[in-house]
């Protein structure tokens, strides 16, 4: 396992080298597990490519279908895990749960204990989602945290915070922007942002 073509032993030349003790600890474990035959560098590469291929476009696709097709939307809200299989997405064994925003309800998602997130549908979670400050505060002062994201809510709007504590994974179904009647599913999907799917953005814009 010593030659220079062995990717398990090389740092990626176009990426900065990690120097912290614990990053190196991680890379040491990786090297030992590859050397021990537990997995291969090719398997690792395939997993990384799959993870990097997931993005909020997937969530946007689901939202656009729900806006266009009321029956799909009903199935999605009732049993998200089953409904998204129609679009080729499968999050099992976790239970995919869709939270519908309306004029009187705003939903926002957090994982206070960890940082659970529907990665397959939203891609890598943002750094702030994993941060102490978001996790600590959004359950207790959601309106103040949302204001930091630029979302100001009147007291007529009910705020629902969803703490993703166990086997459910959540995605917000944002409100469809006005003036999008007759738009194609593809056009609609392009309006959907990552933050609107987490609930830290309320209004989608067509401009």
């Amino acid at each position: 396992m010593g030659d220079h073509h062995d990717h398990s032993k090389t740092f990626q030349p176009d990426h900065p080298e990690p120097t912290s003790d614990d990053a190196l600890l991680g890379l040491a474990l990786r090297e030992l597990l590859i050397d021990g035959g537990y997995f291969t560098a090719a398997e690792e590469q395939a997993v990384i490519e799959k993870m990097q291929g997931a993005s909020p476009e997937n969530g946007g696709h689901i939202v656009a279908r729900a806006w266009k097709d009321p029956e799909f939307k009903a199935r999605l809200l009732d049993h998200g895990s089953e409904a998204i299989k129609e679009l080729g997405f499968d999050l099992s064994p976790t239970e995919f749960t869709v939270l519908e925003n309306s004029r009187s309800i705003h939903n926002v998602v957090v994982c206070t204990l960890c940082s659970c997130y529907p990665r397959a549908l939203l891609g890598m979670s943002p750094a702030w989602y994993k941060s102490k400050n978001y996790r600590a505060r959004v359950v207790r002062e959601p309106r103040q945290v949302l204001a930091e994201f630029g979302v100001e809510l009147s007291s007529e709007v009910e705020v629902r915070v969803h703490d993703s504590t166990a086997e459910l994974r959540y995605m917000v179904l944002p409100q469809r922007p006005a003036g999008t009647e007759g738009w194609t599913e593809q056009q609609l999907a392009a309006l959907v942002t990552r933050d609107s799917l987490i609930g830290t953005q309320r209004t989608l814009t067509t401009g």
């Binding site: 239970e95 007291s155 709007v157 009910e158 629902r160 915070v161 086997e167």
Partner: peptide
């Protein structure tokens, strides 16, 4: 069995600064 349960924010946090409508959901076994 897992449940999704709903709490009233005003009951949960004595100093809650928000609407009496606000809720918090979490999953509990």
């Amino acid at each position: 069995r897992l449940y999704r349960v709903r709490l009233l924010q005003r009951e949960l946090w004595p100093d809650y600064r928000g609407s009496h409508l606000d809720k918090l959901d979490l999953e509990v076994f």
